[in-house]
Amino acid sequence: MKLKLNRFFFLKAILYGSLVYFIYLLVLITIQYIPINYKIAFLNLKQEEIKLAYYKLAFFSHVYSSIIIISLGLTQFSKTIRNRFSSIHKISGKVYILLILLVASPSGLIMSYHANGGLISQISFLTLSILWFVFTLSAYTSIKKRSFKKHRNFMIRSYALTLSAISLRLFKYGIVSVFELPPMDTYKIVSVLGWTINLGIAEIIIRKTTHKNMYN
């Protein structure tokens, strides 16, 4: 039993440690746009779009809010924070939800129209933005109704989509390392894999925890 608990905490520490590391890498990417710079990193490919005022607003709103959202999401799944520091859990959860509903999801929706890779990427990011909004809103309405299980499940789905900012880059790195594909073909693939795989894993986690609770 003790060995099993030690293994659980070890795996949990690796998971959280990995997430913190990847969030740190995202912070480094975000810092490139501070102060606002129109000719760096991703924006080098969007010189036509950046001439549009609404795209500039959407892009920087999305980039700056997303790094806060992905960091706050970590606090939502810690039993220690939820049980011993419930005020932190509630406040960070409210900010997480508000930023997605009012800033990150709407701005992502706008950006999806101008996504690299054509129609496939556009549809993929459009779907991602809509599902992100729906799952996050459902998490909010569930907790208002004190439906804790539904709230937890929708938060898992919401954060799975939030983490697509990380998984998209990981898939891109993996594909580029193994295959020699045109850049836009790679982007089309990762635009889909970046969130669908995450959502699939989220559903597995939800099903496993629901099944476990039924027999405990």
Rank of each mutant, 00 (worst) to 15 (best):
T30A: 11
I31H: 05
Q32C: 06
Y33G: 14
Y33E: 13
N37F: 03
F42M: 12
L45P: 01
L45Q: 15
Q47M: 15
Q47E: 12
E48M: 14
E48G: 11
E48R: 14
E49F: 09
I50Y: 07
A53Q: 13
Y54A: 09
Y55S: 07
L57K: 08
L57W: 02
F59G: 02
S61R: 00
V63F: 01
S66G: 14
I69N: 04
I70A: 07
I70V: 10
G73E: 03
Q76V: 12
Q76W: 02
T80L: 10
T80Q: 05
T80V: 14
N83K: 11
R84L: 06
F85A: 10
I88V: 12
I88A: 05
K90I: 15
I91K: 04
S92H: 00
G93D: 01
V95Y: 01
Y96W: 10
I97Y: 01
L101H: 11
L101M: 12
P106E: 05
P106H: 04
P106S: 06
L109S: 12
M111G: 02
Y113N: 09
N116D: 13
N116F: 06
G118Q: 06
G118W: 00
G118R: 12
L119P: 00
L119D: 02
I120Y: 00
S124I: 04
S124N: 03
F125G: 02
F125P: 00
L126K: 08
L128S: 08
S129E: 03
S129L: 04
W132P: 00
W132L: 15
T136F: 03
T136G: 10
T141R: 15
S142T: 11
K145S: 08
R146T: 12
R146C: 08
F148V: 09
F148P: 01
K149V: 09
K150C: 08
H151C: 14
R152I: 07
F154T: 07
M155G: 10
M155W: 02
I156V: 15
Y159C: 08
Y159V: 13
A160Q: 07
L161C: 05
S167K: 11
L168E: 09
L170S: 09
L170Y: 02
Y173I: 13
Y173Q: 07
V176P: 01
